[in-house]
Amino acid sequence: MQIFVKTLTGKTITSEVEPSDTIENVKAKIQDKEGIPPDQQRLIFAGKQLEDGRTLSDYNIQKESTLHLVLR
């Protein structure tokens, strides 16, 4: 499924993921596309910071959901 990751600069990254993918996994995909190390990434969805060990389905993230990427 496709999800969108919006950066603070307003850029939107499209990523191909599975509901069973972990947040860590998603951060790795963002690193592949943007070159941002996962340890600098914080992903936010519905006002919550997403934890690395959890999966997209844990957070009820569905296709075409938009996550927000904040850098630390």
Rank of each mutant, 00 (worst) to 15 (best):
N25K: 14
T12P: 02
N25H: 11
Q49Y: 14
V70Q: 09
L43W: 01
D39F: 11
L8I: 12
Q41Y: 15
G10T: 02
L50I: 03
I61Q: 00
E34G: 06
E34A: 14
V26C: 02
K29I: 12
V17T: 03
K29G: 06
T7F: 15
I30Y: 02
E51T: 06
S15P: 09
T12N: 05
Q41I: 13
Q40F: 09
E34I: 15
Q31P: 03
E24Q: 12
E24R: 14
L8K: 10
T55V: 06
T12E: 05
E34D: 06
I13W: 12
Y59D: 01
S15M: 15
G10Q: 03
T12I: 15
I13K: 02
D58H: 12
S57F: 10
S57I: 08
Q41M: 15
Q49C: 13
L43C: 01
S20A: 08
V70Y: 13
L8N: 12
I13D: 01
I13G: 01
R54V: 06
K6C: 12
A28D: 06
Q2D: 05
E24K: 12
R54A: 08
L50S: 01
L8Y: 13
S15C: 15
K63V: 07
Q31M: 13
I30E: 00
Q2R: 15
T12D: 03
P19R: 07
L67P: 01
D32Q: 14
I44S: 08
T22Y: 08
K27R: 05
L69S: 02
E16D: 11
F4D: 02
E16L: 13
T9W: 15
M1R: 03
K27P: 01
Q41F: 15
R42I: 15
I44K: 04
A28S: 11
L50C: 02
K29L: 11
N25T: 14
T9N: 13
K6Y: 07
E24D: 07
D58N: 05
R42Y: 13
M1T: 03
E24H: 11
H68S: 07
I36H: 08
I44Q: 06
K63S: 15
I61W: 01
R42D: 10
F4E: 03
D39L: 09
L56E: 00
D21Q: 05
E64R: 08
T7Q: 06
I3C: 02
D58Q: 07
Q31G: 10
I44L: 12
V5T: 03
K27N: 01
R42V: 15
H68I: 15
S57R: 12
N25Q: 14
Q62T: 13
D58S: 14
E16P: 05
S20W: 14
G53M: 09
R54N: 09
E51M: 11
R72I: 14
S65Y: 08
I30H: 01
Q41K: 03
